[in-house]
């Protein structure tokens, strides 16, 4: 397993911002880059911990995933679903045109 050793630069910030669909203003990029590097350097402390025989922990709850019965208990609330939308038309959400 690779260990934590990474330096974020502006191209990386651009790539990550693109993945997260976040516009980052040019003037803020350097500061953000520095912040990310500081945080990543801080969390790199974890390298000190030997986790070779440790299973990852995703949830602290001890119980099993509950299963619900297959019943229609929801829906037909089109108005509520659309109520807060910035733009709708004849029951649809509307977004800028998508080209597939």
């Amino acid at each position: 397993m690779s260990s934590i050793k990474s330096i974020v630069d502006i191209p990386t910030v651009n790539k990550i911002a693109r993945l997260a669909r976040l516009e980052i203003l040019e003037k803020n990029k350097q500061n953000l880059t520095n912040d990310l590097n500081n945080i990543l350097e801080f969390v790199a402390q974890l390298n000190e911990v030997d986790t070779s025989n440790v299973e990852p922990l995703a949830s602290v709850t001890g119980h099993k995933l509950p299963l619900r019965n297959d019943e229609v208990t929801d829906g037909n609330i089109g108005e509520l679903v659309l109520q807060n939308a910035p733009e709708t038309s004849s029951g649809f959400f509307v977004v800028p045109k998508v080209i597939e």
Binding site: T73, D74, G75, N76, G78, V81, S90, G91
Partner: peptide, 18 residues
């Protein structure tokens, strides 16, 4: 979610808040 899985109905009708 508990919304109906059969559609063909009006847009956004078989939709829950989930």
């Amino acid at each position: 979610s508990g919304a109906s899985a059969s559609f063909g109905s009006d847009a956004n009708s078989s939709v829950s808040l989930v």
